[in-house]
Amino acid sequence: MIAIADFHAPASMIWSREGLIGYLYGLSAEKAQVDGRPQAVARSSQRLRGPSAFPAGLFTDDRCSELSAIIFSNACSIAKLNRVAVSGLGAPTGLRYTRVGMFFDRTPGALAGIPFCHDVTSAEYRGLWPHGYEPWSAELEVFHNPFARHRVPIELIPEAAHWFDQDGDLTCSSVHETSILWSQTMITEESARAPGLADFLPSGDAKI
C-alpha cells in the first residue's frame, strides 16, 4: 500500500480527491437525465480531464497487481491536528475554530455535496461522530485495487472509508455516517463575529 496526500498547490486537497478517483478507476461523474430528473451518472474514461490528458485507470487491469491499495486523506494538515484536540477538549482561550466545507450527500445520483459551517467546539459538530469529537480516522480513505495479488482486509483499517469493486461496481463503505468531501478551517478571535455559511458561498447556495 502507498499512503499519499496532496500538497502540490495551495488548498489542493480541496479539489484533488475527485482526480485521484478518476486516475485509479478511470471513472468520472457527468450530469444526465434519469427518470426525468438530473442526476450524477458514472462514466468511464481512459484519460483525465484537462490539458494533460493523463492516462487514467491504474486499477482497471492487472498491470499494477503488486500495489494493493492507495491510502488517502483530504485532511492531512495542521488544521486536522488542531481540530481533533479542540473538538475534544475545547478551544484555547480567546479563539474560535470554524470549519466550512461540503458533506458527502448519500442521496443516490446527488449532483453536489451539502454545505456546512460549524464551530468545532459546538455540540452539533461533536455530534457528527460517535466518539463525541472529531476522530483521527475521519476523511481517511482506502482505495482498493480489484486486481491486487494480495488483497487488503477492511478490518486492517476499520474506521476508514473503503472503495472497492463489488460485482463490477465501485462501492464505498464507511463506518462513519459523516463524510466530508472538502473543508477549510479558520481560526478567529472569539470576540469577532462568528463566521456563517453565507460568508463562504454565493448568494442562494447557503442551504443546509
Rank of each mutant, 00 (worst) to 15 (best):
L111F: 12
E190Y: 07
D6H: 07
E190K: 15
A206M: 09
H118C: 08
R106V: 04
A112M: 15
A110T: 04
A198P: 02
F103P: 03
A198E: 15
M186Q: 07
S65Q: 13
P135E: 05
P195T: 02
N74K: 05
S179L: 02
L81S: 05
M186Y: 11
N82C: 11
N82D: 06
V41K: 12
G19N: 09
Y23H: 13
G57Y: 05
C172F: 02
L197Q: 09
F103V: 00
Y25T: 13
E139I: 10
Y97D: 00
A75R: 12
I78Q: 08
Q39N: 08
V100I: 00
W136S: 15
A9V: 07
L197D: 07
F59H: 03
R83I: 15
E155R: 03
R47Y: 06
I70T: 01
L170Q: 04
D205C: 15
N145F: 06
E30G: 13
A40M: 05
Q46V: 05
I208D: 12
T171F: 00
S73F: 06
H131P: 08
E124M: 12
A110C: 02
R99K: 11
R83L: 11
G94K: 00
G57Q: 05
E139K: 10
W182C: 07
G204H: 07
S73D: 09
S122C: 14
A148F: 13
G88H: 02
F7Q: 12
A161L: 10
S44K: 06
V84T: 07
E141G: 14
L89D: 10
S52F: 01
N74M: 04
L20P: 07
V84K: 02
M13W: 11
V120M: 14
L156H: 11
A75Q: 12
E30W: 10
L20K: 05
G94S: 03
G22M: 13
A194I: 07
W15C: 12
P146I: 13
R49L: 06
T188I: 09
D167Q: 14
F103Y: 06
S183P: 00
T188A: 13
F143Q: 07
A53S: 09
R49Y: 04
G113Y: 02
L20E: 05
L111W: 09
K207G: 01
W129P: 04
G57I: 03
Y97E: 00
A85Y: 03
G26C: 04
E134I: 13
C64I: 09
W136Q: 11
S16V: 08
P115L: 15
R126S: 05
L67D: 03
E134V: 14
K31P: 14
A29T: 08
P158S: 08
I154C: 06
P153D: 13
D105M: 10
R99F: 04
G204S: 11
T188E: 07
P202L: 09
S137Y: 13
L140E: 04
S68R: 01
H131L: 05
G132P: 14
G101A: 00
